[in-house]
Each structure stands twice: as C-alpha cells, then as structure tokens.
Design a protein around this nucleic acid. Structure first.
Length: 575
RNA sequence: GAUUCCGUAGCUCAGCUGGUAGAGCAUUUGACUUUUAAUCAAAGGGUCCCGAGUUCGAAUCUCGGCGGGAUCACCA
C-alpha cells in the first residue's frame, strides 16, 4: 500500500530526482564541519567582526526571499536563525549558473538542510547576515513544513493544533522555538537537582522497572508477561522499596530519576508513564528532608529564572525558603472547623457526611481524612507549603510520629493547590512494617483495590537492619510544569501518550493501476466520482465505459479509449 | 467514564435558513542584485474525518463511528 502524495510532496520528489540527475547527492554521507552557530554570530559578531570573516554554518531553510540574481534565505540551527545573502555570481563565478538558477532557486525548498561558507556582514536594513560564497545541500526535505511567520512579535499562521503538535513533535520543535526552550529548561531542572545531590556525595542509581511485586505506592500497575520465566511482571509504580534495599546495603544516599507507570486515567495532569525523582538518605529524618527539599526547589527556581518568584497562570509563586509547615489535622481544622484528633473511625465518617463527602464502609479512617483534605483543604495551598504528620492508616511505609499517637512523620509539599513532593521518616522497624503490610492486606480484603502488596524480600532486607533514613519523592513532570508555566503535562513531555493514529482507508492510484487501469485513466475514474475500490465494484461496466469515454472527449485528452471488455475486467478484478 | 465543542487545500481559517467550495501564507510560472510577514503579475492545488439516513440535491440537517480539545469524575 503506497501513500497518497499531495501535489507539493510530488514536486519535492521530482526535485529529488533532478538533483540526482545533476549529480548532486541530496543525502551526502560525508560530514559538514561547521565553525560557528547562530548563537555565536548574534552574540559575538558585533564586538569582533573579524572573527567571522570565514564562517561555515549549517541549518534548516525556514524562509526565502528571492529577487532575481540575489536572494535572502533564513536558516535555523539549534539555537536560532541567521539570514543568508546569496548572490548568483558569487556562488556561480563561472559561466554555468545552474547551482543558483536551478539548484538553489528551483530544487531547494523550505525545510531543506544546507551548509554554507561565507562571511558575516550587516545589511542595509541592519540585519546580521552571511554573504554566502558556497552552498551545499545536506538533506532534502520531502514534506512541506507549516510556515509560521512573525513580525514585530506578532506570529502569523502559528502551528498550534495540539493533536498535530504532540503526534509530530519534531515539527512542533522545528517551527515553535518556545517549545524547544521549554524542553531545554526541563533538562536544566533535572541537571540542577542532580548536581545538588552529587554535591552531597549521594549516588545516582538504577533499579528495576520490571518488578515481580509492584510496591512502594498505592496504584494500579501495568501487567506484562515474561516468556522465559513464564511469570507475570509489573511495570513499576514506584521505586521506593528498591532504593531502601540499597540503604540497607550500606549506601548513605541514593537517588534515581525514574519513569513510573500507572494504569489509570489520562488527562492534562496525568500520563501513563511519568518521571519521579526519589532520594533516600541515611541518618536523617523528615525535618532534615524538608529543609533539603526547599533548598533544592529554591535552587531550581533560581537556576531557571534567576529569581525565586515564578509566574504560574495568574499567580506568582515564591519558592524562597523556608516554606510554611502545617500539620494535616490543623489544616483540616482550619478549613472545615472540625478537630479530628480525638475522633474514631465512625465519628470521622459522620464528619464526612456532614461535609457532604461520599464515603462508604470500605473506607478506613486514614482514607477518609485524605478525602477531607483533598476536597476541603488542598486547593488552598498556593504558595509552597509542607503539610506534615499524616495518620498511620494512609502511610504504611512511614515511621510512627515520635510524640503524636496515631500519626506518622510524613510531609507532602503543596504548590498551587497540588501535591508536588512526598516524603517520610522511613519506617525501618521490620516488625512494625510487617504489621502495616498486613493492615494493607485487610484493607484490600475490605475492598480497597489500591492497598499495597506484601513484599517479603523487602521485609527480609529490613530485618537485616536499615539505618534511620529519610526519603523523598518529587514529580518531575509536575515540577517542570510549575517552573515553565505550563498547564498540561503533554506540554512538558516530548511524546505524550496518544491513541494510535488511524489510517484512513484510502485507495491509491497504484491500487487502481493494479487492476489494469492505465495511469491516465485513473484520473478519469476519479473524475467520474470513483475514489474507492468498493465504489468501482458497484459500477455497471457499460455505463462506466461510456462515462469515461465521455470525460476523455470533454477534457480533450489524446488517449486510446478502453474497450468495454477492459472496463468490465477492471471491475471484475476488484474481487 | 460523563457533558460539551471541534475535524474544510501543505499550514491558519471563512463558508448564512441545504444548490458538490473560498481567503491569506505555502506551491508553480514570470519580473526584480541588501530584502525581511519582501513586493508585483498569473496559475495550479480539495475522498469538505469515516459510514449510513433525510432530500431532486448534503461541507451544511439527522444518526452512528473514529480522532482531538475543554470541563467534570476517577486517580498519588
């Protein structure tokens, strides 16, 4: 099955052939050595023009203005654009003007990648340009790019359709420089964090993505199957339990930038695979981790924006440390008026009903408290705030609070009303941990389909002894969204998950020709309104024969009419 | 998953109460040696997402499907 090509695509394929006929390889194998970049030129030309008297630069053609024997062309490299001034008699000093008249003007298009050599100068209009002395095609582009134009900051014909931008991110990156900028910031954020961790001597590690038991978080996993072992494996929902095994093994601090996978809903803040950074540090507690975390985020903001104040939607978030610490039950008391501290499960259930929250019998006290906080409090925390000291029931991997009965030493960092990070003083008491897992099992039997599995090997590791440890996890995609002022996760992932593209059921010219229809007649068959094989199948042969001969006459084409038998054979061949 | 909006040329979009399509940019041809959303002149380009129905006639109306956006729900 061949592609149906548009007019412009056909023309570019013809250009490709003509280039080959002229002895020009449209995809040359040898390297093209550049000695400058658009960024270099724009930053350094003014102070030292002499340094740019012989430049070699490569990029993609993004715009052309041709005026007879001289032309202006814009090329784009990774960092920006530069204008080229191409004069016929400069690139074609001899009699033969083919390179300019044919190759450059006719056979090259917007989207082609070229390399040029020349000298930098400033035009009468004041624009830094390169006066080209030689020109080489490095890669021919066969598809027309969306043409985005811009004047005085006003963008015309912007390429904005989200579906096309996400499905063809490469095109998005070519024509929308701000998209490229956003992804560069993403990497900068990650690098800033990595440098920060490394400055403490913590070790970056890798742990299994395929796990026999999907532990460390309450979430629905993707399930797959290993053929050789003939057993199910899960894509990890978290890497917590593996990183803690490494702390047991004697590392002081370990961290991983990890892809996690959750088989749950997709929307503008959830992608089935997403990136989380988790870090575990021995001999620390959650108070230390709060300070560590706010320092880290402040650094990231400064690195990206040069200030701690960052715009997010119509808010300004100030990431300057220290952040407020609010106990979870105090937050609930403040926003609902109810003090849940002395209450048992039934009393909390009644509070939920009073607040108009949907609860059922399978929900334990912890889950209901989580529900109240999520519904009534969470959205209030716009500026970075640590919510601390969560109930035991909702924190099965967290150490019990040193003074407050029924609570754990856990914090979550909220920004713009959303959870950004989650951390504990880790539970390292193997007996307690086993009981907590068993409690999860009871919840699961009660009908909670998110309760955690028991990981026996993890318990065995804890039984050898894990130092007191604090761990923290932070959603990288969400952090990038906050730092780059994006509202959707799709904007911070190169390739967000999408439904597969559905190919339209198209009948091509070749499909028609396979039936024995000569090429010139295919056009007439289409003119007769037949674009699908199945439409052809339903035709009366004699009627179609007459119709085609009539069309030929009408369009004054010099063709030999097919016989009615031939037309009949086409239709019969459709099968 | 629910509601709602959208799908027309390579791109951005217009197309009224039904009469088989238009614009700008891009493309092609021509003019032009410092232009810059270059300009000027001319031309070509469309299974109007797919399928069924109503109708003499559907891009337009109805139903179903596919894909996407938004809002909500679910979800660490």
């Amino acid at each position: 099955m061949s592609q149906q090509l548009s007019e412009q695509e056909l023309l570019r394929r013809q250009s490709l052939e003509e280039l080959n006929n002229l002895g020009i390889n449209p995809y040359p194998p040898e390297q093209f050595e550049v000695n400058t970049t658009t960024q270099d030129l724009h930053e350094k030309y003014e102070s030292n023009p002499a340094a740019f008297s012989n430049v070699k630069i490569a990029g993609r053609i993004m715009g052309r203005r041709i005026m007879g024997a001289a032309s202006f062309t814009e090329i784009q490299d990774e960092k920006g654009r530069i204008q080229l001034y191409i004069k016929r008699d400069d690139i074609c000093p001899d009699e033969d003007k083919t390179l300019y008249n044919t190759v450059f003007k006719k056979l090259m298009d917007i989207g082609d990648i070229i390399g040029v050599e020349g000298f930098a100068f400033v035009t009468q209009m004041g624009e830094l340009s390169i006066h080209v002395k030689s020109l080489k095609l490095l890669s021919k582009s066969l598809r027309p790019l969306p043409i985005v134009k811009e004047k005085d900051g006003q963008v015309y014909d912007a390429f904005t359709d989200p579906e096309q931008r996400y499905r063809q991110r490469y095109v998005d990156l070519i024509v929308n420089p701000q998209v490229r900028e956003g992804f560069i910031k993403r990497t900068k954020i990650i690098n800033t964090m990595r440098n920060y961790f490394n400055s403490f001597g913590y070790l970056e590690v890798e742990t299994p993505i395929l796990q026999p038991i999907p532990g460390g978080a309450a979430a629905r996993p993707f399930i797959t199957h290993h053929n050789a072992l003939n057993m199910p494996l899960y894509l990890r929902v978290a890497n917590e339990l593996y990183l803690k095994r490494l702390i047991v093994g004697g590392f002081t601090g370990v961290y991983e930038f990890a892809k996690d996978f959750r088989n749950e809903g997709m929307d503008r803040t959830h992608n089935p695979e997403f990136t989380v950074m988790e870090i575990y540090v021995a001999y620390k507690d959650y108070h230390w981790m709060m300070e560590f975390t706010e320092t880290m985020i402040e650094k990231v903001a400064l690195e990206i924006h040069g200030t701690t104040k960052v715009t997010l939607g119509n808010q300004t978030i100030d990431y300057q440390k220290p952040y407020r610490r609010v106990r979870l039950l105090d937050a609930i008391k403040e926003h609902t008026g109810f003090d849940l501290t002395p209450m048992n499960e039934d009393e909390v259930r009644n509070v939920c009903k009073t607040l108009g929250l949907e609860v059922d019998e399978t929900m334990g006290k912890g889950k209901m408290i989580d529900e109240i906080f999520g519904e009534k409090c969470e959205h209030n925390y716009i500026q970075p705030t640590f919510i601390i000291d969560y109930p035991v029931e909702m924190s099965p991997l967290t150490k019990k609070h040193r003074t407050d009965e029924g609570l754990t030493e856990r914090f979550e960092l909220f920004v713009n009303g959303k959870e950004l990070a989650n951390a504990y003083t880790e539970l390292n008491d193997p007996i307690d941990q086993r009981e907590r897992f068993q409690e999860q099992l009871r919840l699961s039997e009660k009908g909670d389909d998110e309760a955690m599995f028991i990981d026996q090997d993890f318990l065995r590791a804890l039984e050898y002894g894990m130092p007191p440890t604090s761990g923290m996890g932070i959603g990288i995609d969400r952090l990038v969204m906050f730092m780059t002022n994006q509202e959707t996760i799709q904007e911070v992932l190169f390739f967000p998950q999408m439904r597969p593209e559905k190919k339209a059921d198209v009948t091509t010219d070749e499909d028609f020709m396979e039936l024995g229809i000569p090429q010139p007649w295919v056009d007439l068959v289409r003119k007769a309104g037949i674009n699908h094989l199945k439409e052809l199948k339903n035709q009366n042969p004699n009627k179609l024969h007459g119709q085609l001969c009539g069309l030929k006459k009408k369009m004054k084409l010099d063709l030999q009419n097919p016989t009615p038998e031939e037309v009949k054979s086409w239709i019969e061949k459709v099968g």
